[in-house]
Design a protein around this nucleic acid. Structure first.
Lengths: 159, 159
DNA sequence: AGAAACTTAATAAGTTTCTGATACAGTCTG
DNA sequence: CAGACTGTATCAGAAACTTATTAAGTTTCT
């Protein structure tokens, strides 16, 4: 008998991840913040202070839109603009405590929701997911490396 | 010695899934379709013909916005409106071949992108992901069941 | 050093997309 | 069959985004 090699079903994986994407996006927001605005906040919380240019590269909108979003977030006390010591033209944007609290609150909601779901898995299923977590982490890291190569193209997103 | 039980790290899982979400959302779109518009198209392609009300429940916008989005998609030949045989007030929206082609094209891009990434995993890592796929699938199914219970509340999304 | 070329962010004006309120037609209840 | 409710459309206005432009700072080249 030849050995069975269960090859990874990428189509199925894509499908599942698409469905997680919807699940995550649907999360209600307390604040009256638009999708892109929350995304900017999330990026800043995750990656630390960034210049507007770098923020623009990581979102799906123009530099002009990012400027307007940051202005709005600043008015609401969720981010702060500061000078970039290494470049007089640039602006460094950083989240405030209030801004970080919003991102972390949303993450806590997702964790709570996922916890409820994983609680219903069998121990074997939970173990399978736990065993795959390092590999999944490596996948997103590989992606980050690759998109870091080029400047990061403009795009228009959607589910 | 007591047996080591590697419990599932839900926080880590949430974090990884958040990062996949960003990766998927950033995908460039050929057409000039907004985020929500693409989402509607995706929903219709995945779930089959739906009434406007049901579409509204599954997206993060008002019924008014859904009506306008469907009107725009219909003008572009990507969906078609039809009567609901079981309810004279209702409208059944279905994707056309052109609309489905767009959704499937985007999915193909995601599959291709994920394939490139999984190619770089070790065989052991690929196997771990493959082994977890059924459990991950069950997670999204559990979610669907749960959100099917209530009517599906309105929400405002973000990453 | 100084001018030309480039980068960074802000602003203005216009377009698209979304919301809230309302209207209207079809369905259900008593 | 009257009143209450549901499903969709329409309209006006608000919000979010785009393109084009400008001003200020930096780099490059001579």
């Amino acid at each position: 008998m030849s050995q069975e090699i269960p090859e990874l079903n990428v189509v199925g994986l894509t499908s599942v991840l698409e469905r997680f994407t919807r699940m995550f996006i649907r999360l209600p927001s307390v604040q009256r913040l638009s999708f892109t605005t929350l995304s900017v906040l999330h990026t800043l919380e995750g990656r630390g202070p960034m210049r507007l240019t770098d923020l623009t590269a990581s979102e799906q909108v123009t530099q002009s839109a990012v400027t307007q979003i940051v202005t709005k977030l600043e008015r609401e006390g969720l981010v702060r603009r500061g000078p970039d010591p290494s470049d007089g033209r640039a602006v460094l944007v950083r989240v405030t405590a209030a801004g970080a609290a919003i991102v972390r609150g949303r993450r806590a909601d997702r964790i709570a929701h996922l916890s409820e779901l994983t609680d219903r898995l069998s121990p074997a299923e939970r173990e399978a997911v736990a065993a795959a977590l390092p590999a999944l982490t490596r996948l997103v890291e590989l992606d980050r490396e690759r998109s870091g190569e080029d400047g990061g193209g403009r795009a228009r997103g959607g589910t």
